[in-house]
Design a protein around this nucleic acid. Structure first.
Length: 589
RNA sequence: GGCCCCAUAGUGUAGCUUGGAUAUCACACUGGUUUGCGGAACCAGUAACCCGUGUUCGAAUCGCGGCGGGGCCGCCA
C-alpha cells in the first residue's frame, strides 16, 4: 500500500533517530505486511539489532511505545521483531471517496504520457489457424498492451508479418501445384476439415500446407519440390516482386482468418509490418555491411559470415550466422534490421516470444548492443502441451482456438439457460459469447508466463472457480444495484450525505484492496506479469462480495449514500480492470 | 554431450532481487450460514516450500551437487 508509505516514514524517522539509528536506509526496508490482519506496512527490526545491541522484538516494542498513532495511521503494533502500521479506516474511506484512486482506461483514451512503448506480439506465420499454444502469445501480448494503457502508457501494438521465407513458400507452392482432390488424397488418413470452418481460409488452406509437408518427405519427389521451393525462397529474399505477390496471395486470406479468430478474443493491432520491407528497402543489406565490419566478425569457407558472440559472453554455440554462403540474409538478420527500425518508432520495445526463441533473441540483443543500440524487453512464455504431447500444426495434433471458443460458448450458454430461464435466445447468445471468450482468456493469463501447462478441456471450460465469470458476475451485481438506485431516483451518491462514523469490517477490507489496486497494476506492467493483475481483480471481486453481504446499499427502499459511493468506485475499478484483462463487462448475465 | 528456464497444499499463485513473523491469496475439498439490494453468495476447517548439502544466530529466499519437467544448441523460420 504505497499511499501509506510517506506517512509511515514521517512518523518513523524521529523515533529511529531517538533510538540511535542514522541515515535513511531503513526506508527501503518498509514492506507490505505479510498478513492483512497485522497491518498494511511493516518494518522488520532485525537489521538494527547489531548496531543498537538490542533484540529485534525489543526494538519493535520500543518503537511502538515512542510512536503515536495519527489521523492516517490508526494502529501500530509490534510482533516478533516487526513493527506494523495499519491505515485508518476513516481516513482511507475519505481518501477513496474523494476520488483519488485512478480508474484508468485500457482502451488508451487517457494516456498519462508517462511512457511510450511499442509491443510486438503474436507475429505467427500465416500458414494456418491458431491453436491454443500459439494463442498464448496473442493473449499475453494483448493483455500486456491493455494493461500498459490502463496504467497510462501510450502503446502501439504491432504484428510482424512473415511474408517471405520457407513456410510461406511451401504454402504458395502447394496452392499453385496441388488440386483439392490431391490434397484430400494425401491427407486421407487424418481428421477431415471441420465442417464449421470450411469457408474460413486459415482452416482451409492449412491443409495445402500440411499436404505439401507430407510430399516434402516423399523420397521420390522431394528433391524436385525442394528445388522449386528453394528457388521461390531465394527470389523472395532478393525482393522479387512477382514471387512476393504470389506469396501475399497465398497467405493474406489465411492471415485474415487468423485475425478473425483473434478479433473474437478482442485482440487487435495498430500496425502490421512485413518482413520483406527490410529486404526491399535496403535495410538488411546495410545491416550486413555494418556487421561485416565488426571486430568479432568471421567468415566461413564458403563465404558465409557470422559474429563470434562468445567474445561477448554467450555460452554454448557462439557463432551467430547473419549471411549465407550465397550472400542472402537469414531470419535473424532481418529481425535485427526490424529492431533498428522499431527503435526509430519508439524508444521502448517489448517483444512477446515463445521460449524456443530465447537463444535467437539473445543473439539479436547482443548484436544490437554491438551496433550501439539499446535492446528490447522480452516476455518469454512456455508452451501449452496436450495430455498426449506437444502441439504441432504440421502434424495436425492441436486444439484449434476456434473450436475451443465454440465449446466455451456452448458451455456458457448451457449454464445461463439453467440459471436464467427468463432470458431469450438473443440475450443468451450475447452473454454466452462474452462469458466463453472471457473465460478462455482468463484461464491463460492467470498462469505465470514462464510456467508451462497442459491443456485440459475440463479445466478450460471450468467457470465455477477462480475464473472470468466470477469477476463478471460481481461486476454485474454492481450494475444491478446502481440500476435499482437509479429507479429510486438516486443517480449519484450525495457527498454531503456520507456517514463515516461507523465503518463495517468488510467495507474496510474492500477499501484496503482498492487502495492497493494500482500498486499491483504498476507491478504487473513493470515486470510484464499479467497474472499478478488477474489475481488482483479476483481479489477485488471477492472483497466486493463480502462488502455486498454486510453493507446493504438499499435497505427498506432507502439508499445508503456512503455504501452506494463505495459500490460505484468498486464497480468502475472492476470494469476498467476487466477491460484491461480482455474480459467483457456486462450489464446483466 | 553443452547451454538456458521452471519447481511452494489436489490446482493455480504471492513471497526469492535486499535471508528474519505462525509461508500469501484464490479455487477445489469438508462442514456450516443463508431464500438474497442478483446464491455464479457468505463463514469456518483440512492441506505445500523437489531432494541433499554448505554458509548463517536464522534459508522458500544465497552457494554447491543431484532428481524431475520444458526449451535451445540449422548457412531453418
Amino acid at each position: 500500500m504505497e499511499i501509506l508509505r510517506s506517512y509511515v516514514e514521517q512518523i518513523l524517522a524521529p523515533a529511529l533517530t531517538e533510538l540511535g539509528v542514522n541515515g535513511d536506509h531503513w526506508k527501503a526496508m518498509i514492506a507490505p505486511s505479510r498478513e492483512r490482519t497485522m497491518g498494511d506496512l511493516s518494518l522488520p527490526c532485525f537489521a538494527f539489532a547489531k548496531q543498537l545491541g538490542m533484540a529485534p522484538n525489543l526494538i519493535a516494542e520500543k518503537l511502538q511505545s515512542i510512536i503515536k498513532t495519527t489521523e492516517v495511521i490508526s494502529e501500530i503494533n509490534s510482533t516478533s521483531g516487526y513493527l506494523n502500521f495499519k491505515i485508518s479506516s476513516t481516513w482511507l474511506a475519505k481518501f477513496i471517496l474523494s476520488g483519488q484512486i485512478r480508474v484508468g482506461d485500457a482502451t488508451g483514451k487517457y494516456p498519462s504520457g508517462k511512457r511510450s512503448v511499442l509491443i510486438e506480439h503474436t507475429s505467427a506465420n500465416p500458414n494456418g489457424p491458431f491453436h491454443v499454444g500459439r494463442a498464448r502469445n496473442a493473449i499475453l501480448g494483448d493483455t500486456l498492451v491493455r494493461l500498459h494503457r490502463l496504467h497510462g502508457n501510450e502503446v502501439r501494438a504491432e504484428y510482424y508479418v512473415d511474408d517471405m521465407g520457407k513456410q510461406v513458400a511451401v504454402l504458395a507452392w502447394a496452392l499453385a501445384n496441388l488440386s483439392t482432390d490431391r490434397v484430400e488424397e494425401i491427407l486421407a488418413d487424418r481428421e477431415p476439415l471441420n465442417e464449421s470452418w470450411k469457408d474460413k481460409a486459415d482452416h482451409e488452406r492449412v491443409r495445402w500446407y500440411q499436404a505439401a509437408q507430407v510430399l516434402r518427405n516423399d523420397d521420390e519427389i522431394k528433391n524436385d519440390i525442394e528445388r522449386e521451393i528453394a528457388a521461390m525462397v531465394h527470389a523472395s529474399e532478393n525482393g522479387d516482386d512477382n514471387v512476393l505477390t504470389s506469396f501475399e496471395n497465398a497467405y493474406q486470406p489465411v492471415l485474415d482468418g487468423m485475425l478473425q479468430t483473434l478479433g473474437r478474443l478482442g485482440i487487435t493491432f495498430d500496425e502490421f509490418t512485413r518482413e520483406s520491407l527490410f529486404v526491399t528497402n535496403g535495410d538488411v543489406a546495410k545491416v550486413m555491411r555494418q556487421l561485416s565490419n565488426l571486430e568479432i566478425h568471421g567468415i566461413a569457407d564458403n563465404g558465409a559470415e557470422y559474429l563470434d558472440l562468445g567474445a561477448r559472453g554467450l555460452k554454448g554455440k557462439t557463432e551467430f550466422y547473419f549471411r549465407r554462403g550465397d550472400g542472402s540474409s537469414l531470419y535473424a538478420t532481418r529481425d535485427i534490421a526490424y529492431h533498428i527500425w522499431k527503435f526509430k518508432q519508439c524508444e521502448n520495445l517489448i517483444n512477446i516470444l515463445g521460449e524456443d526463441h530465447k537463444l535467437q533473441s539473445k543473439q539479436v540483443s547482443l548484436t544490437l548492443t554491438e551496433l550501439g543500440y539499446s535492446t528490447p524487453e522480452v516476455l518469454f512464455y512456455s508452451f501449452i502441451k496436450l495430455p498426449e504431447g506437444k502441439m504441432s500444426t504440421r502434424k495436425g495434433n492441436v486444439v484449434f482456438m476456434d473450436d475451443l471458443l465454440e465449446e466455451a460458448k456452448a458451455h456458457a450458454a448451457q449454464v445461463v439457460r439453467e440459471i436464467r430461464s427468463d432470458y431469450n435466445t438473443e440475450q443468451i447468445d450475447e452473454i454466452a459469447e462474452a462469458v466463453g471468450t472471457s473465460a478462455v482468456r482468463f484461464n491463460i493469463i492467470k498462469v505465470s508466463p514462464d510456467k508451462g501447462f497442459t491443456f485440459r478441456w475440463e479445466e478450460a471450460l471450468s467457470f465455477d472457480s477462480d475464473s472470468a465469470p466470477f469477476i463478471m458476475y460481481s461486476h454485474t451485481r454492481t450494475r444491478s444495484i446502481a440500476k435499482k438506485c437509479h429507479d429510486l431516483g438516486v443517480n449519484v451518491a450525495q457527498n454531503n450525505d456520507l456517514n463515516l462514523s461507523e465503518i463495517p469490517e468488510s467495507m474496510y477490507e474492500l477499501l484496503r484492496i482498492i487502495a492497493c489496486h494500482n500498486d499491483i497494476l504498476a507491478r504487473a506492467v513493470e515486470q510484464s506479469r499479467p497474472n499478478l493483475f488477474a489475481n488482483q481483480l479476483l481479489n477485488l471481486a471477492n472483497y466486493y462480495n463480502g462488502f455486498y453481504r454486510d453493507c446493504k446499499v438499499i435497505k427498506d427502499g432507502v439508499v445508503n449514500h456512503t455504501f452506494f459511493a463505495i459500490s460505484e468506485i468498486a464497480s468502475k475499478l472492476l470494469k476498467s480492470g476487466m477491460i484491461g484483462l480482455g474480459i467483457t463487462p456486462l450489464e446483466q448475465m
